[in-house]
């Protein structure tokens, strides 16, 4: 038995030695042919480290023009996309209209459709509102295109400090454009002014009711989602759960109701928002609803929510103060 194992392992060792020899030969022959010394194993490690450094020095080129539209229209909130590689060759024909125009128009008309579904608008009212949408979008396009032009065909090397600085400045410009797009038809826009002037009292009431219902529904969804997690974290019973839900529902924040804002399927943002609102509730009522043990943890979570306020406001999920 022992002999068998020994003989098997000996032949295995022999096979391994032959394979290793072949591998060495495969490495050595081309190197000798290239007139280079054969590297030892430790040389190889040093060599790899050097290769890494060389890789870091290699330029990592980005075309900011190519990244502009992708970051403005495809990725919102805090997410960023980096599209590497060379810029595509210029199209034989210019696109019929800037992307900002079609996207802005699409957003405006979608909002108009929702208003129409909520309160019904006459043809003349609709004509005025479509004109207002067009006017707001054209103004937006003019501003965005000016910024966009600055980056057209502009290449940066992300492995250089100067390139990184330019990327940072690019992000700030795109962020500004994202905010403009988000607020395009909000307070201060021509659309908002025309809407107020165009709708009659009945339509305004109807629209306000629909917006309020949508806001309340989404707030309820967020509260139930967050308290369902608190059920797990704190071990709440029905009475405690109901008390927290009641307190949160009575502090409904001014959520943006536009589909575009709600489109952020960001569960962390929604939970942070609920905890932030909880930090604004009557602490004594919340404290009274839970046990000492539960309060120890809940107080920490509430503080975390409170600290998230500025970040949450930046995300544009709640309406800014007038």
């Amino acid at each position: 038995m022992t002999t068998g194992i020994t003989s098997r392992s000996t032949s295995r060792d022999r096979r391994r030695a032959v394979r290793a020899g072949l591998c060495r030969a495969l490495v050595v022959i081309p190197l000798l042919a290239a007139g280079r010394p054969v590297p030892a194993v430790d040389d190889q490690i040093v060599g790899e480290a050097a290769a890494d450094q060389e890789g870091q020095r290699q330029p990592h080129m980005l075309d900011l023009g190519m990244n502009f539209d992708a970051n403005l229209f495809e990725h919102r909130g805090n997410s960023w996309v980096v599209r590497g590689g060379p810029a595509p060759p210029p199209a034989a024909e210019r696109p019929p209209e800037p992307l900002a125009l079609s996207r802005g128009r699409e957003m405006g008309l979608r909002r108009l459709e929702r208003i129409e579904a909520a309160c019904g608008i006459a043809a003349e009212q609709k004509r005025r509102l479509v004109l207002a949408v067009e006017s707001d979008v054209r103004r937006f396009v003019a501003e965005v295109e000016t910024t966009r032009e600055r980056y057209a065909g502009h290449q940066i090397n992300m492995n250089e400090p100067a390139g990184q600085r330019e990327w940072h400045s690019f992000q700030q410009d795109v962020k500004r454009c994202r905010d403009q797009l988000r607020d395009l038809f909000d307070r201060g826009s021509l659309f908002a002014t025309v809407l107020t002037a165009t709708l009659d009292d009945g339509q305004r009431t109807c629209l306000a009711t629909e917006i309020a219902a949508r806001r309340s529904f989404h707030w309820r969804a967020m509260v139930l989602e967050a308290t369902s997690k608190l059920d797990d974290s704190l071990g709440l019973d029905q009475r405690q759960h109901d008390a927290l839900v009641k307190e949160l529902l009575s502090h409904e924040p001014a959520l943006r109701t536009e589909a575009d804002m709600l489109a952020r399927d960001d569960v962390n943002l929604r939970r942070s928002l609920v905890l932030m609102v909880m930090s604004e509730c009557d602490a004594s009522r919340i404290r009274a609803a839970v046990s000492d043990q539960q309060w120890r943890m809940l107080a920490v979570l509430i503080n975390q929510g409170k600290a998230m306020r500025s970040w949450i406001e930046q995300q544009g999920v709640i309406e800014g103060k007038p």
Binding site: A213, F217, L224, E225, T227, S228, L262, D265
Partner: peptide, 26 residues
């Protein structure tokens, strides 16, 4: 009751997701 609460939260989350995508009425 906790399981029922979770089911309700998931149902409402489904409707919220639909609303974000399809613009439902109340």
């Amino acid at each position: 009751r906790r399981a029922a609460r979770r089911s309700e939260a998931t149902r409402v989350a489904i409707v919220a997701r639909l609303d974000r995508q399809l613009d439902l009425t109340a």
